[in-house]
Simulated scan of single mutants.
Amino acid sequence: MREARRRHYGAFYGLAPAPGDDGRPLVLVHGNCQAESLRVLADSPGSPVRTVRMPPVHELTGDDLPCLEKLLGQADAVVSQPIRAGYRGLPLGTADVMAATAPGTRLVMVPVIRWAALHPFQVIVRSPQAGDPPVVPYHDLRTMGRATGAVPAFSGGFVRAVRDISVRELVERQRRHGTIDVVDLLLDAGSRACQVINHPGNEVLRGTAHRMLEALGLPWDPRDPGRVLLDSVHAPLAGPTLEALGLDGEETTNWQVHGKTVPDTEIQQAHLEWYRRHPGLAEQGLQRHAEVARLLFTH
């Protein structure tokens, strides 16, 4: 498995030739799976930049640092999501990686995109002790409510309120970290904005990649790759949610998880049992997302 991974990131590890210097700037894209999708788009045919596929930041280890530092020393520009200094005890934060670049290397910040408008009950709760819930690593506020005895009261007003919270939080993150702006891309994409709350659709990613390159002074429209870039998990898209937001789109009732159809009821039951095995976690999740939970359980 380790060798297969090293081959997958062959140019990063020096097992395959890095893109040759053909006059185009070398741009490294640093972050999570969204960052890799932006790199794929920026590397499509006709691109004004060269890129190197790198492991996502949460997979990098101390052993990878020499490879990372070598590439950073060659980079003309770095595109980075906001990553705190000393991330996971390693010099992987945005400021850390920029300190390893040559003088004059440009930096463009892109936001970590989370968009709850299409999946207003879906949240992410990190638990170092319990890990992720089974089947999919996404929690549902309604299921957490069931685990704690709370009864949700769905309304169109709740859906629109969650959309507005998503806008507010993303605008604030963009402002705080000095990133490019992507809020309008999500709003304009409508029902195509995302597959799950942290996997934006191709339309949003292409717009983000365009603005990323524009910020580097190299405006260019990336081609659609002909496949869904963040395709591992698709959450159901509820008709009442689309109606509340005034969006066109086809209602779905099942999840698609790594190509397999999984009924939402199956995931609900698996998560309820998981909460029973981890007492207090559902309550912690509701507290972590208290603003939205208050709206859901009081409407």
Rank of each mutant, 00 (worst) to 15 (best):
D221I: 07
H30V: 01
D22F: 13
A215D: 11
D184A: 15
D63R: 09
Q268D: 15
G31S: 07
F297H: 08
L68S: 04
V79Q: 02
R84A: 14
V171K: 11
I83H: 05
V78H: 04
S127G: 12
A161N: 00
T241D: 15
F12V: 00
P66R: 06
G31R: 01
R277Y: 09
L205F: 12
D63L: 07
R24K: 14
V40G: 00
G23D: 07
P56C: 06
E214G: 02
V228I: 14
R114K: 11
A117K: 02
S232W: 11
V78C: 14
V40W: 09
V27E: 02
L38D: 00
E243F: 01
T143S: 10
V78T: 04
A147L: 11
A11E: 12
A282T: 07
R176Q: 11
G201W: 12
D224V: 08
G217K: 03
F121N: 05
L71I: 02
E251W: 13
S127L: 13
I83L: 09
Q269N: 13
D21Y: 10
P219D: 12
V228S: 09
R173C: 11
R175P: 00
M144T: 03
E3I: 13
L286T: 05
S232R: 14
V204S: 03
A18F: 02
P225E: 14
Q81T: 11
W220R: 04
G217I: 04
R211K: 14
E3L: 13
R277M: 14
S80M: 01
H139V: 00
M144L: 11
S44M: 11
V79L: 06
P103A: 11
S155L: 13
G259R: 12
P55T: 03
P137Q: 00
T101N: 06
A130P: 15
V257D: 10
Y138E: 04
Y138C: 00
P91E: 04
A244I: 02
P66L: 07
G239W: 06
S44W: 03
A189N: 07
V204G: 03
G207C: 08
A238T: 06
D181K: 07
R192A: 15
F158K: 01
G89Q: 01
R106G: 08
L295W: 08
P103M: 08
E283G: 12
P222Y: 10
P111S: 11
V29E: 01
A35R: 01
G207E: 01
L107R: 03
A209Y: 03
A75F: 05
Q284W: 12
P103R: 08
A35Y: 00
L247M: 12
R146H: 08
L72T: 06
L245R: 02
D181S: 09
